[in-house]
Each structure stands twice: as structure tokens, then as C-alpha cells.
């Protein structure tokens, strides 16, 4: 290999550069987030496990069905019917985006852009 020394140094630099997040957070322990659940409700529209694993897919389907297919009612697995609306249905119970959505999303560094249009309850409250 030509310039073996230079090449190897460069490869090492690249590896270090691309793994910076790992080094920066090495050994750091953060508490697993505990999203605040609505106190007066026993269950969400689907089971806890389902919501935990698939809420993003569910919300994506919701918006497609309501906006694009004109189907505004979601019939849950247990037969219960819900009107598809993030602000009027979901956030009626989960009435604090910061304590519910953000607690996990921040932990896993996911920033969905729902709230650049949809208005979180606490934001609406402050607005007036």
C-alpha cells in the first residue's frame, strides 16, 4: 500500500470522528423515561404494548385515513370507536405533550414534526 502510514492515520481519524456520539456518551447512564399517563383512564385505544410499539404507525395511518380516505372513525380491536383527531382525541387524555410525548422522544433523540402544525394542549393554554 502506498503511503500506508498516512492512510492508516486517516482511517483512524475517520472512525473516531464517526463514533463521536458514542465516545461523548460513553458510560453515561440516564434514567429510563417515565412518560406521565392519564390518571383517570385505565387504557388507551389499544393495549399498552401495542401503543408502545406501534403508536407511530397508528398515527400515520390515522392521518392517511382521515385526510386522504375520508375515514374519520377508528374502530379499535375491542370494538370501541374513536374519532380520528390528534388534538381532540389523543390529547384529551394525554393532556401534556411535554410530560408524555417528549419524555421518550427526547430520550431516544427522535423529533417528529407533529407539533409544528398541531397545537399541544399546554401550548394552546399559554397562547391565550
Amino acid at each position: 500500500m502506498y503511503n500506508a502510514g498516512k492512510v492508516i492515520v486517516f482511517i483512524v481519524v475517520l472512525i473516531v470522528f464517526f463514533t463521536i456520539p458514542m465516545w461523548l456518551n460513553f458510560g453515561r447512564v440516564e434514567a429510563i423515561p417515565q412518560p406521565e399517563l392519564p390518571k383517570d383512564k385505565a387504557k388507551c385505544i389499544e393495549s399498552k404494548e401495542y401503543m408502545r410499539a406501534y403508536h407511530m404507525k397508528l398515527l400515520d395511518d390515522w392521518r392517511k385515513q382521515a385526510i386522504r380516505e375520508n375515514k374519520h372513525v377508528y374502530v379499535a380491536k375491542d370494538g370501541e370507536k374513536y374519532f380520528i383527531n390528534l388534538q381532540k382525541t389523543c390529547m384529551k387524555c394525554h393532556n401534556n405533550k411535554e410530560k408524555f410525548c417528549d419524555s421518550c422522544h427526547n430520550f431516544v433523540v427522535t423529533h417528529p414534526d407533529c407539533w409544528s402544525c398541531h397545537i399541544a394542549p399546554e401550548v394552546a393554554e399559554k397562547w391565550q
Binding site: I45, Y50, L58, H72, V73
Partner: peptide, 11 residues
């Protein structure tokens, strides 16, 4: 398992 969710209808 992802496909198993609820169904959608018109109000």
C-alpha cells in the same frame, strides 16, 4: 403483528 390494528370507517 404490525398489520393487526383496528379498522377505519366513515362516521
Amino acid at each position: 403483528s404490525a398489520a393487526v390494528g383496528g379498522v377505519y370507517t366513515k362516521p
